[in-house]
C-alpha cells in the first residue's frame, strides 16, 4: 500500500496555520533581524544603511542613563519576581482555608489587575505624594516627623514603582495559585494529615512541587510583564526624579522618537533581546532538553 504523502497529512490544519506561520516569520523573525541589522547603522529619524560598526553599542554602554536603566530593571525584576510569588502564594493559601466570603475577598484582591498600568501608576503617584498621600495622612494623625516619599528620593524611587507593580500583579498570581491549589487532590491532604505532617510542611514539600505547571505559567506571565515595564514608569514617575527610575524600554522609546536616533534605539532593543535570550535559552534547554535523557 502506498503511504500517503507526509506533506498532505492534516492538510486543513496546515492551511489554517499558514497565516500564523507567515506572521511569525515576517513580523517577529523578520522584524528582529531588521532591527539587529539597522543597529549597526547611523539611522536618525529614518532608517538608512550607513554603517558605523559597533559605534551605537559603544555609546550605549558608556551612557549612564542606560546603565541606570539596566540596574533598575534588575532591582525591580528580582524583587518583583520574589515578592509577587511569595505574596500571591500566601494570599492563595489564606483564601484556601475555606474562609467565609471567599468570593468577595478574591474579587477585592484581583481587582487591581483589572486596572491598566497607567491608572495604577497615577493612583500610586498620588498615594505616595508627600503633600496629600500617605505621608500627609500620617502627619495629620500626629506623627509630625513621619517621612514617606519614595518617589521624591532618587535612591529608593524604584521601590515606589515596585509597590505599585506588586499591588497590581499580586492578585493575578493569587488567582493562578488558588486554581493550582484547588487542583490538588483532597486525598493527598487526607494522607498527609494521617501521617501527622503539619499543614505548612504539606504546602512546602508536597503541594508546591505538585503545582509545578502552574508555577511555570505564572513565571512566564510575570517575567514578560517585567521585561516590558514601561507604561507604569511613564505614568508614575516619568523616569524621575532625574533618571532614578529609567528602564530599558523607556530608553528605547525615547531614543527612537524623542531623540530621533533610531540606530541607538535599535542597539538598545537588541541588547534587551540578548538579555532575554541569555535567560530564556538555558532555561528552555533545561526544561525541554532534559526530558529526552530522563
Amino acid at each position: 500500500m502506498k503511504r500517503p504523502n507526509q506533506l498532505f497529512r492534516n492538510l486543513s490544519a496546515k492551511i489554517a496555520a499558514i497565516p500564523m506561520i507567515v506572521t511569525g516569520l515576517f513580523v517577529f523573525v523578520g522584524g528582529t533581524v531588521w532591527t539587529v541589522v539597522y543597529s549597526f547603522t547611523k539611522s536618525g529619524l529614518l532608517p538608512r544603511l550607513k554603517w558605523v560598526g559597533l559605534d551605537q553599542y559603544e555609546r550605549l554602554w558608556s551612557t549612564k542613563r542606560w546603565l541606570v536603566s539596566i540596574e533598575n530593571l534588575a532591582i525591580y525584576g528580582i524583587s518583583m519576581l520574589v515578592l509577587v510569588f511569595v505574596i500571591g502564594f500566601i494570599l492563595a493559601t489564606l483564601i484556601d482555608q475555606k474562609v467565609r466570603f471567599e468570593n468577595a475577598f478574591r474579587t477585592i484582591i484581583l481587582y487591581p489587575f483589572a486596572l491598566s498600568f497607567v491608572v495604577t501608576g497615577l493612583v500610586w503617584q498620588w498615594i505616595l505624594n508627600p503633600e496629600f498621600g500617605i505621608q500627609s495622612i500620617v502627619r495629620d494623625l500626629g506623627w509630625k516627623s513621619f517621612t514617606f516619599d519614595p518617589l521624591y528620593t532618587p535612591e529608593i524611587a524604584i521601590y515606589g514603582v515596585l509597590i505599585a507593580g506588586l499591588w497590581q500583579g499580586s492578585g493575578l498570581v493569587m488567582v493562578l495559585m488558588l486554581a493550582g491549589l484547588r487542583g490538588i487532590d483532597q486525598d493527598i491532604w487526607k494522607a498527609a494529615r494521617v501521617d501527622g505532617i503539619p499543614a505548612w510542611k504539606t504546602y512546602l514539600f508536597i503541594v508546591i512541587p505538585m503545582m509545578r505547571p502552574v508555577f511555570i505559567t505564572t513565571l512566564v506571565l510575570v517575567v514578560s510583564g517585567i521585561v516590558k515595564l514601561y507604561d507604569l514608569i511613564v505614568a508614575q514617575t516619568g523616569g524621575g526624579p532625574g533618571i532614578a527610575t529609567e528602564v530599558p524600554a523607556k530608553y528605547v522609546y525615547d531614543m527612537m522618537f524623542a531623540a530621533s536616533n533610531l540606530g541607538q534605539g535599535f542597539a538598545a532593543s537588541t541588547m534587551m533581546l540578548v538579555t532575554v535570550a541569555l535567560i530564556v535559552i538555558p532555561w528552555a534547554m533545561l526544561e525541554f532538553g532534559g526530558k529526552k535523557n530522563g
Binding site: P241, G242, S260, N261
Partner: peptide, 19 residues
C-alpha cells in the same frame, strides 16, 4: 543642535537637578 544632542543634554540636567 540635533534632537539627539538636546535629548542627551536634557537627560544630563534631569539628573543634575534631581541629585
Amino acid at each position: 543642535i540635533t534632537p539627539d544632542t538636546s535629548n542627551q543634554i536634557n537627560t544630563l540636567f534631569a539628573e543634575f537637578f534631581a541629585d
